[in-house]
Amino acid sequence: IDVRFTVNGLDVTVRVRTEEIAERVKELAKNGVDWREIQRIAEELNK
């Protein structure tokens, strides 16, 4: 599942395995978490 969001004007796409992880990623993006941090968290959750 590809999750797309915009952080500080940057369009970011993170690929995740499940809808649940996708929701977590969207939540982080909404809360203004840095995209590199979101990427790292997504990689952890995908394991």
Rank of each mutant, 00 (worst) to 15 (best):
G9N: 06
R40L: 10
N31V: 08
E44V: 08
I41M: 07
K30I: 12
Q39P: 01
N8C: 08
I38A: 01
D2G: 04
L28G: 01
V7M: 09
R17Y: 13
V12R: 06
I1G: 03
A29N: 06
R17D: 05
A22K: 05
T18H: 03
R17V: 15
R4T: 14
R24N: 04
A29P: 00
N31R: 13
N8D: 14
V14G: 00
R15Q: 08
T18I: 02
G9W: 02
E43W: 09
E19D: 09
R40C: 08
V33G: 04
L10I: 15
V7R: 05
I21V: 06
R24K: 15
N46G: 06
G32L: 08
Q39D: 04
T13P: 01
T6W: 09
R15P: 04
D2W: 15
V25H: 00
R24V: 15
V16W: 01
V3A: 02
L45P: 01
G9M: 04
R24A: 11
V33C: 06
N31I: 11
A22V: 04
E19S: 13
E23W: 12
R36L: 14
E23G: 08
R15W: 15
G32C: 02
V3C: 05
E23Y: 11
I21R: 00
T18P: 00
I38T: 01
A42L: 09
Q39I: 15
Q39V: 15
V12I: 14
L28F: 06
G9P: 00
T13D: 03
E37L: 10
I38F: 03
G9R: 02
N8K: 06
E44K: 07
K30F: 10
V25W: 01
R40K: 11
V7C: 05
V7E: 05
A29D: 03
E37Y: 08
E19I: 13
I1F: 15
V12F: 15
V16T: 04
E37G: 04
K30D: 09
R40H: 07
K47L: 14
R15C: 10
F5E: 01
N46D: 06
E19W: 15
E23S: 10
V3W: 02
E44P: 01
L45M: 12
T13H: 10
V12W: 08
Q39L: 15
T13S: 12
T18C: 03
V14M: 12
F5H: 02
V16Q: 00
I41D: 01
E43I: 10
N8S: 07
A42F: 04
I41H: 04
E19Y: 13
G9K: 03
L28E: 03
I1C: 05
V12G: 02
V12H: 12
V14R: 00
F5V: 13
R24P: 00
R24H: 13
T6S: 11
K47S: 14
F5L: 15
V33K: 06
E23I: 12
I38Q: 00
R36G: 11
N8E: 09
W35R: 04
T13R: 05
E27I: 10
I1S: 04
R15A: 06
T6P: 05
N46V: 02
K30Y: 10
E23V: 11
K30L: 12
I1K: 04
E44R: 07
N46T: 03
I21K: 00
I41N: 02
V3H: 02
V12C: 07
K26W: 11
D11M: 15
V16D: 00
L10Y: 13
Q39R: 11
I21C: 02
E20V: 09
K47V: 12
N31H: 10
E27Q: 14
A22S: 05
A22T: 01
R40M: 10
E20Q: 13
Q39S: 08
T18K: 02
R40N: 07
L45Y: 06
I21Y: 03
I41P: 00
K47C: 09
K30S: 11
E37T: 13
K47F: 12
N46W: 07
V7K: 04
G9T: 03
T13Q: 07
K26V: 10
A29I: 15
N31L: 14
V14P: 00
N46L: 03
D11A: 13
V3Y: 03
R4Q: 13
T13M: 10
G32N: 09
K26Y: 11
V14H: 01
V14I: 15
R15T: 14
T6F: 09
T6Q: 12
R17I: 12
V25R: 00
A42W: 03
L28A: 04
D11N: 12
T6D: 06
I1Y: 12
E44M: 08
V7H: 08
L28I: 04
I21Q: 06
T18G: 03
E23R: 14
R40I: 08
T13K: 07
E27F: 12
K26G: 04
V12P: 00
Q39M: 15
T13G: 04
E23A: 12
A22W: 04
A29G: 05
V7W: 12
V7Y: 11
W35H: 07
V7I: 13
E19L: 14
E19C: 08
E27G: 07
